[in-house]
């Protein structure tokens, strides 16, 4: 995570490896959709999607070779998305916890 003044050129081989991994993950995620996992289906699908996204961010988008500021920027978007989801779902998931009299 050093400041690069010279562009870091990623070797083509890295791109091929990342691409192959992405393709494999794509077929894994499709295949897993047909395995009866019940409620865990979504967690598996999201775990694979996040892995794929991280690969794209790190290698195709060069974050792995970028300075810390870019890491923070990329992370901030994700963290704020989690804030939006977590606090809203905190409401939805706890709605029925208190019984309303007469209902």
């Amino acid at each position: 995570m050093i400041e690069h003044s010279e562009p870091h050129i990623v070797p083509k081989k890295t791109y091929y490896i990342v691409f192959a991994t992405l393709m494999i993950l794509l077929f894994v995620t499709v295949a897993m959709a047909f395995v009866p996992l019940g409620p865990f289906n979504i967690y598996v699908a999201m775990a694979i999607a996040i892995t794929k996204a991280v690969l794209v961010v790190l290698y195709f988008m060069h974050v792995r070779y970028s300075n810390r500021l870019i890491w923070v920027a990329a992370g901030a978007g994700f963290v704020w998305l989690v804030i939006l989801l977590a606090f809203t779902l905190a409401d939805y998931s706890s709605r029925g916890w208190i019984k309303v009299p007469g209902k």
Partner: peptide, 9 residues
Amino acid sequence: QSSYAGMIF
């Protein structure tokens, strides 16, 4: 909104 979420907020 849920009362519990209300408390957190």
